[in-house]
Amino acid sequence: MASLKALKIRINSVKSTQKITKAMKMVAAAKLRRAQDAAEAARPYAERLEAVVSSIASKVEKGPQAPKLLAGTGKDDVHLFVVCTSDKGLAGAFNTNIVRLARRRADELRAAGKTVKFYTIGKKGRDQLGRTFKGDIVHSVEPGDLGKLGFADVQDWANDLTARFDAGEFDVAHLFFSKFVSVLTQEPTEIQLMPVAVAEGAETVTAGASVDYEPDEEEILADLLPRNVSVQLLRASRENAASEQGSKMTAMDNATRNAGDMINKLTIQYNRTRQAAITTELVEIISGAEAL
């Protein structure tokens, strides 16, 4: 049986842990609101861009002269997984879920005889993937606070990725991130980043009318496709930022509740021990008095 003093110390320590997790939960809740707004604000741009890209892409001939970002390299031997995670932990299974999906897909592709390489955005993803795929991480970025990422940061990564694609380092790029569904649910998601996946039969905003292109389709497309890559990355980061905070909030809420349970249990134990000590003392006094 632990001594009274030890129990008291234990209770106090759990109490201060609870204070920390409670504060972290509140911080996450505040950040979540901002991240969610940012994720929603990025949506109109992404949606419109996607509509425009598919409407032009359906008009441009898929031939050897078509931009590489649209037509692909003609092979699918080397796959690049762009895995977006966060730099910090303490967010429940947020990072683990993304990594797990990436790892499963990597195993599938490996089994089919393809080469898989990784491009990690976020320290946690790099660390977790590094355990199994150490030599296959071609590059890793540390984004810092996901909520503060702007278009400019994302564009640097997109340019880097596009350059690698043009250099023929890989044939297909997949983007892994966690989609924000609600505070309780975040869904690890995979989308194809390069070549640009065009939804077939997504016939178009401008259908039926003849559209003037200025300069011409090819040039607009050449301008649009790299931008589409940046926008997808931005969208992934925004969704990730919201998911991270949501996940963190849930995790910290659980931690606070667990700490509360533990405090209750320890308090009961403390009281019982105190009672036992008092009873023993009383018995000693009474039997001492009787002996006289």
């Binding site: 003037d212 292109y213 200025e214 607009i220 301008d223």
Partner: peptide, 19 residues
Amino acid sequence: PGTEGDFGVLEGHSPMMST
């Protein structure tokens, strides 16, 4: 401000796309 020159858009403009 289009790449190939400025253009004004009023209601009922014909469909077009420009960088």
